[in-house]
Simulated scan of single mutants.
Amino acid sequence: MQFFVKHLYLLAPILAILALFGVYRLIKANDRPIPHYEPKQVEDTWSAEEYMRHLNLKPFNQREVHRLLLKRTRQKEGVYLESLLPVMDTAGLEIIRCYHKVMGDDYVPVITSGNDYPYHKKNSKHYKNAAMDFRIVDMPMDKRRQVVEMAQDKLGPRFKVLWEKGEMEHLHVEMTE
C-alpha cells in the first residue's frame, strides 16, 4: 500500500497518456484510404443486335449484370464499383432507365461515387457497398426533379433516393435494409 501512495503522483501523467492514445485511435479509426482500382477495359457501347445476341446466348448472372451497369454508364475517375452488392447493380440499371426516359436514350449517366470516397459520413452505406451516387448537376432543373421522383417510384421502399443539393449536387441511391 505504501508503494501506491508513494507513486500516486504518476497517476495523472499515465491517465493523460492513455487519453491521448485513445484520441489517436479514434482519429485513425476514421482514416479511410482510397482503394486503388484499375478498371478493366470494357467496350464503349453495345449495339441493339449485340445486346439481343448476348441475351439469347446465356442468362444474365451477377457478373453480367454488373458488366451491363458499367457499359451503360460512365464512371468518374477513381470510382470503385467492383464490390457493390448485386442488388445495387440492378438498382443502378433502374436508375439508368429513369435517366433514359427523362433525357432520351442517347444520354449516358455518370456514376460519381461507389465505395471510393473517404469523406462520406462514418456510417455511410457507401462503405457497406450499398450506395451509389449519380451526376445530376448537368441536367435542367425540371429534368432533375423528374429523374429523382421516377427513381424513387421505380425502386420502391427498399431503397432511398436522395437529391443531395449544394456544391456537390448529386443523386444518392442507397439500400434501406
Score class of each variant (00 low, 15 high):
H7A: 03
G114S: 06
G166H: 03
R135A: 15
V65A: 06
E164R: 09
P13C: 04
H7M: 06
D31H: 14
M168T: 07
E167D: 13
I17Y: 11
M150H: 08
Q2N: 11
Y24F: 13
R74F: 08
I136Q: 00
E38S: 10
Q2S: 14
A29P: 01
Q62T: 15
D105H: 09
A19M: 10
K165D: 11
L81Y: 03
E43S: 08
V108H: 02
V102T: 09
W163I: 00
E177Q: 08
V110E: 10
Y127S: 06
Y127C: 03
A29I: 03
P86S: 10
K160G: 08
R53A: 11
Y51H: 09
M132L: 15
S113Y: 03
K101T: 08
M150G: 06
F60W: 12
R97V: 00
E77G: 04
E64F: 07
K125V: 01
Y127D: 05
I27E: 11
F159Q: 01
L26R: 12
L11A: 13
L26I: 09
K71A: 09
Y107D: 04
R158I: 00
V102A: 08
E174H: 06
T73Y: 01
K154D: 13
A29T: 08
Q41M: 08
A91I: 01
H126E: 03
E50V: 01
M168Q: 12
L20R: 05
E43F: 02
N30P: 00
L81F: 07
L57M: 10
V42E: 11
Y119P: 00
A130S: 14
A151Y: 02
I17H: 08
N56V: 02
R67L: 14
A131E: 12
V161N: 04
V161A: 06
L68E: 02
K121T: 13
V102I: 14
Y9R: 08
L162I: 11
V5Y: 02
K28W: 04
H54S: 14
R144M: 14
A130K: 08
R135S: 14
K40W: 03
V148A: 05
M168G: 01
A130G: 11
P109L: 04
L11H: 05
K165T: 15
N30I: 07
R63I: 13
E49Y: 05
A12F: 14
T90I: 13
L81N: 02
R74W: 07
M139I: 15
A29W: 04
K71V: 14
H36Q: 12
V102R: 03
E94G: 10
V148Y: 02
P59G: 12
R63W: 10
G22A: 15
K71M: 10
N115H: 10
M150W: 04
R72Y: 04
L155T: 06
L26Q: 14
R74S: 15
P109A: 01
K71T: 11
K128G: 01
M139Y: 04
S83H: 14
K71L: 09
E174L: 05
S83P: 02
I95L: 10
M175K: 08
P118A: 04
D142V: 12
N56H: 12
F60A: 09
H172P: 07
